[in-house]
């Protein structure tokens, strides 16, 4: 049982990081911390893809004079995650822009305070 976990430590790490991110996203009342939680959550997905592509003892998948003989890591998930990282960066920037907007309007980033203030609005 323990060996199973150790042999798949990268997958365990993915699940742990995912849980931490999700917990922070749900539990924290501060909007900036929620965005950080979202980032950690997304990071776990990146970790999942990149570790899954790794082949033990495999070299980078290069063609030409640089190419390494023998087994190669699968380059496709790495490329996919490059795209996902770009998506993640744009999401984070939009999220922070919205946080700034909310703060300017209400002067607080606390979820409960915000709900209170909004309930008082017409």
């Amino acid at each position: 049982m323990i060996e199973e976990f150790i042999a798949r430590h990268y997958h365990v790490a993915f699940i742990v990081v995912l849980a931490i991110g999700l917990y922070m996203l749900i539990e924290s009342g501060n909007l900036v911390k929620k965005v950080i939680g979202l980032n950690i959550f997304q990071m776990s997905v990146f970790l999942f893809f990149t570790t899954a592509a790794y082949v033990e003892g495999g070299g980078p998948a290069l063609v030409g004079p640089e190419s390494v003989p023998g087994e190669h890591s699968n380059p496709l998930p790495h490329v996919l995650i490059l795209t996902a990282i770009v998506v993640g960066v744009s999401l984070t920037s939009l999220a922070l822009a919205l946080v700034v907007r909310v703060y300017r309007e209400y002067g607080t980033l606390d979820e409960d305070r915000l709900e209170e203030v909004m309930a008082g609005e017409p």
Partner: peptide, 29 residues
């Protein structure tokens, strides 16, 4: 400001949804 707050909430939940989908894509791959 209400719209910005609603958009932020939409985004937090929507991104989690999309990421879960991406994990599914990973397992299928």
């Amino acid at each position: 400001g209400r719209g910005a707050y609603a958009a932020l909430k939409y985004m937090l939940v929507g991104t989690v949804g999309a990421s879960l989908y991406l994990i599914g894509v990973g397992y299928a791959f």
